[in-house]
Design a protein around this nucleic acid. Sequence first.
DNA 1: TATTGTTATACTCTATAACTATA
DNA 2: TATAGTTATAGAGTATAACAATA
Lengths: 143, 143
Amino acid sequence: MNPVDAEACRAWQLMMRFFFAQREQLPPLAEEFELSPVQCHVLHLIEPERPLPMGRLAATLGCDASNVTGLVDRLEARGLVQRRPSADDRRIKVIQLTATGSRIRAHLLKRMTGKSSCSMARLSADDQRSLIRILERLIDQNA
Amino acid sequence: MNPVDAEACRAWQLMMRFFFAQREQLPPLAEEFELSPVQCHVLHLIEPERPLPMGRLAATLGCDASNVTGLVDRLEARGLVQRRPSADDRRIKVIQLTATGSRIRAHLLKRMTGKSSCSMARLSADDQRSLIRILERLIDQNA
DNA sequence: TATTGTTATACTCTATAACTATA
DNA sequence: TATAGTTATAGAGTATAACAATA
């Protein structure tokens, strides 16, 4: 393996490691919100006042559409989101946050990225900015 | 939310996004290896010649020990890993890669971080090094 | 015909609680 | 008594295939 590949490999491994390590910190929050990691992710992908079509959610999550049905079912059953038919194309259903969902989402983001629970907040400001820049490049490449 | 928190939040959201986006690229590999994302992660956590106790695996994954039983069961059934009793403490079982497991693991890492399938390899060398440095800090803080 | 979302099905991942073997 | 791992159980996440409604 040449040096460039070795570094890409190392970076990828660390990324995986970080993600799985994060989950260890999640249960305490799950107790507060009773959400699974995926549900947390869905909730933060749906921004207030910006309804999201089911299909786009599936694409962003990188999973099958049939899966999104169940995810949204559970969030809807808890009153955090609502399905609404799209005016333009009645095959499409858009998902929007309820008032409760919006409140929970804000609380969740604050708890997950706050100093007490997230290592992210303990990074230096420089590191945070670098990380954001690099991740944006990574994600743009995929789009 | 003050600017510092906002950047931590943004960084965390991008991290989550990246991870879920990655899963979209996984299915083609799953077809080759028939492994789930978690199984891939387990496989790359067990380094050749470095057997890992079940308990430590559970801690690294951030999941319950009962869960690891099933994960290892499936990997063992496919001949990729082996359980071995520890000599020091017979309550402990260590997991080690088989020859096949070791080969698959190397192949997997190469495919996942290679230019064709992983955006990581398309980052500049500088970005890769910065990313590694920052992630190491993030992970060390958690330890 | 093609596309969006749902349903039915099956398998994996996950945690909790009760259990066995060892320390 | 305490700890490492397993088993039983139940619920959530996931994909595939067949389906309904709409385009």
